[in-house]
Simulated scan of single mutants.
Amino acid sequence: MLYGILAAATALLLAALLAALLRGPGLRAGVVERRQPGAARRRPVPLLGGVAVLAATCLVAWAGEWTHVAPLGDGVGGLLPAGAAVAALGLAADVWRLRARVLVAGTAVAAACVVPYDETGVPAGILAAGWIVLVALAFRALDHADGLAGTVGVITAFGVGACAAAEVMDGLAVLLSVLAAALTGFLMHNWHPARIGLGTCGSLFTGFLLASAAVFTRAGHGLGEGAGVLFSLTALGTADLALVVVSRRAARRSLLRGGPDHLGHRLRRLGLTPQGTVVLLGAGAFSGVLVGVLAHTGWAGDGAVLWVAGGALVVVLLLLRIPVYGPRRITSSQVRGQLRVRSG
C-alpha cells in the first residue's frame, strides 16, 4: 500500500514536470494541433503530452518490477512493452500523419500479443484483441477536447484497478494507479485552455493499456458477462465512437474524415462550456465504470449492465439530432463537371 502511494505520487509529479518541459519543443518542432475555444481565434496545442504520460508510467512501473517491490505478475509484464510500441506508433502519427489503417494494424498486432489465450481461449481471445483495438481508437477519438481523454482515462484506470484488486492482481492494480496518477499530472497542463495535448501517442497508449488490463481482469469469466463488464468500463468511449460512425455514415462522409461530430462537440452546441462538457462526460464515464466494477465484484447483476447499454443508446440517438455538419462544399472539379454535363 505504501509503495503504491509513493509510486503514484512519483508518477504524478514526473508527468507534470515532463509535460511542462515538452511544451516548448513541441511548439518549435511544429507537432501541434489547432483547437478552437471560440469563434474568434484558434490556438496551437503541442501534442507531446502523451510522451510525458508514457515516460512517467513506464519508468515508475518498471522500477517496481526491477526492484521486485511491485512485480507486475505473469503475462502482465508484457503490457508495458506492447503499450510502448503502440505509443511509438502514435508518436509517429503525430509527427508524420500516418494513415489510420497503419495505426489500426499496428495496434491489432500489439493487442494480439498481449491477450492471455490460455485463459480466454483462441476465439474469445481474438474477440478480446479486437475489443482492445476498438477501445484504443475510442480514446484517440476522445482527445478532441481539452481535458476529456485524460479525465476519462483517470476514471477508467481507477475502475479497472479496482477490478484488478478484487482479483488479487496487485501488480496490475499498482500499474493502473500509476497510469491514473500520470494522467492526473498531465491534466494539470491539459485543462481548458490546454497548454499541451495528449496526442495520438498518449491516447492510444492509454486506451490500449486500460483495455488490455481489463481483459486480464476478466479472463476466465464467461464470455457474455465478461463482455458486459468490459463495455460498462469503457461505455463513454464506445458511445462516442458509435455516434461518430453513425452520423458520418448517415451524412455519407468518410469515416476517416474528421469533423465536429463527437460527444463534446455536440454538447458545446447545446451551450455547455468546455469545462462543463468535460465534467458532464466525466460523470457519465464514472457511472458506467461504477456499474462495471459492481458487476465484476458481484454487487450488481447483469441488468445493471443493460441499463448502461440502454443509457448509451439513448444518448447517441438524442445527440444525433443535433446538426453538426455545414453545407457540403463543391470543389472546382465538380463545378467543371456539372458545366460539361449541362453544355453537352
Rank of each mutant, 00 (worst) to 15 (best):
G161R: 06
L263R: 05
T57C: 05
T331W: 08
V314A: 06
L103M: 10
V133Q: 01
G90R: 01
A157S: 10
H189N: 02
V154A: 14
T151F: 00
V51Y: 00
R101W: 15
R248N: 02
V279A: 13
G30H: 10
A219Q: 11
A105C: 04
T297A: 03
I196F: 03
G298A: 01
A93P: 12
R101A: 13
L270R: 12
D94Q: 08
W131Q: 06
D302Q: 15
L98E: 03
T234G: 04
P37K: 07
P327S: 01
L290I: 03
A7M: 01
Q275A: 14
V341W: 12
I132Q: 01
G337T: 06
L89Q: 07
A108I: 09
V168H: 15
P46W: 00
T67K: 10
L103A: 04
A182N: 08
H192C: 08
L54M: 07
R97P: 09
R336I: 07
H189Y: 03
A128E: 00
T57D: 10
G185N: 02
V152W: 03
A235I: 06
T67D: 14
A82C: 06
G226H: 07
L175F: 03
I322G: 01
G106L: 01
T273D: 11
A136P: 04
S333G: 15
L243S: 02
G153K: 10
V229W: 06
G125S: 02
A55G: 10
A300Y: 05
G282D: 06
A39P: 12
V278M: 09
H192M: 11
Q338K: 13
W66C: 13
D302S: 14
L339F: 13
D170G: 14
P274L: 02
S212I: 07
R140N: 06
V69K: 13
P46C: 00
L72I: 02
L183K: 05
V305R: 15
A136S: 10
L12Y: 15
A219P: 07
V215R: 04
L54N: 03
A141E: 12
G222D: 09
L272P: 03
G228P: 00
G171L: 05
I155V: 15
L27Q: 06
A304W: 15
A93Q: 14
T206M: 04
P44S: 12
L12M: 13
R268F: 08
F139A: 02
G220R: 11
A39Q: 14
G326A: 01
L230C: 10
A100H: 05
R269E: 09
I322V: 05
R41P: 13
D143P: 09
A8N: 08
V152Q: 07
L236K: 02
S203M: 00
R101C: 15
A173V: 12
L320G: 09
M1C: 13
L230S: 07
L6R: 08
R328T: 10
L89E: 02
